[in-house]
Write a protein that binds this DNA or RNA. Structure first.
Lengths: 232, 232
DNA sequence: TTCATGCTTCGATGGTAGCCGAAGCATTGT
DNA sequence: ACAATGCTTCGGCTACCATCGAAGCATGAA
């Protein structure tokens, strides 16, 4: 008797308060771990696991494994758009919910992730590379373009043959824990970080065990000139 | 800990299959009675009543009383937009649902509603008047403009003083059961129907009890010339 | 290897909400 | 005034599903 998309199926996924809280937490575009989402929703990890499995089956979120963590993000901005729409409908009948912020701003701004740059600046760099078509990203896969090679040679004196490695990719997307978006890993990510250090643009914080990366004044300027918002 | 719109509240409304079927049935912009919606959802009237009350409380639908019927429509196209979005999300994960049509085409085309014209032509007439700014409609309220008065005097020899009545409005929106959209009621609606009969444009079907209105060939032409799609 | 952490599966429980029968109001027609 | 229709309210039943404790895997660290 009926045909057409089954909206009840997907709406009921959003209809549960716990799942709705998770989805709302993911609305900023960042990825969150299962535990974080559980906390966000105020439920135990096992319950959260069940919810996350359903959301994934419904195509609303996508998982990304990272070590023993499992990061989840909204599948795409179509999903975000629908959630936004639902929020709009809810708002006008008068039903409301903000988030709080963490700590250590320096660490969130720039830090070492193994051997490459992470944090706000790391994410910003990859964003810039991607939007200027110096790299092409499909999901997890990142590839350096011909323009990208020229750019690296010209501005950072990095040549393709410096990046070759038997068991490590040149480019790789790495999920950033503070920004919860991707930054650039792989041999290129490492080479660029190394170059930043050689050029005295940035240096790892001397405090033992610290992962903070401190940019110099000139380094900050140069970095912004190459990867700042102005170039986007 | 949380603030912002409570999307779960509204999503759960759509999340129930019965309610989702009702909402989907309303997606074509028409209004449907409670019983029809019950049938559409495959549930009894009492259950439907409960669902409709919830949808109304959630601001997704709005009722309109018409005699002993109670017509429901979607509140606005924001609601329709969100439903559309949900359908999009559902479609791409592969979950599907069409509607069937009723009977008696003559009755659906033109009929008497108390003393004024209803059916396809009735709705078409009000649409035309509204779009040419001969009347102004806000929700249920309809008002005749100065242009409208000139139009009526010129083409139908109807003057404002003919329309005055102590206990009845000049213009009124009346919900059409076949088109499920508004047609024109009130003293103006009655006067226009009367004029159509006097001009031999149309006459009530002679069959006892029939509400069908038959248009003559010339009447059809004249009507189309005044209120046809060409004027929109 | 052993331990710790993060996540998932299983099983049992409980609350919630959809559902319908019966009865009650409202409106219309005769 | 009476009957018929359309809708709503009430009460009780049932089924589903969110929730959590406990145990099982997987990954990474020591």
């Amino acid at each position: 008797m009926k045909s057409g998309p089954d909206i009840a199926m997907v709406a009921s996924l959003v209809g549960d308060p716990a799942r709705a809280n998770m989805l709302t937490a993911l609305m900023n575009g960042r990825a969150l771990t299962a535990s974080e989402l559980a906390q966000e929703a105020g439920i135990t990890p096992q319950t959260a696991s069940s919810h996350l499995a359903k959301l994934e089956a419904g195509g609303l979120i996508e998982p990304e494994k990272q070590g023993r963590h499992r990061y989840y993000r909204l599948t795409d901005d179509d999903v975000a758009g629908v959630l936004e729409g639902l929020a709009g409908l809810a708002a006008r009948t008068g039903h409301m919910r903000v988030r709080t912020g963490p700590k250590d701003p320096a660490l969130r701004r720039a830090r070492i992730c193994y051997d490459h740059l992470a944090g706000d600046l790391g994410v910003q760099m990859l964003d810039s590379l991607r939007e200027r078509h110096l790299v092409k990203q499909k999901k997890q896969e990142i590839e350096l373009t011909a323009e990208g090679e020229r750019f690296l040679a010209k501005h950072l004196q990095i040549s393709p043959d410096m990046l070759a490695h038997p068991r490590r990719p040149v480019c790789k997307a790495c999920l950033d824990w503070s920004e919860r978006r991707h930054h650039l890993a792989g041999t290129l990510g490492a080479a660029m970080m190394q170059r930043f250090a050689e050029l005295k643009w940035a240096a790892r914080d001397p405090t033992p065990g610290s992962r903070v990366v401190n940019f110099t004044r000139t380094g900050e300027k140069q970095f912004a000139a190459l990867f700042g918002n102005g170039n986007r």
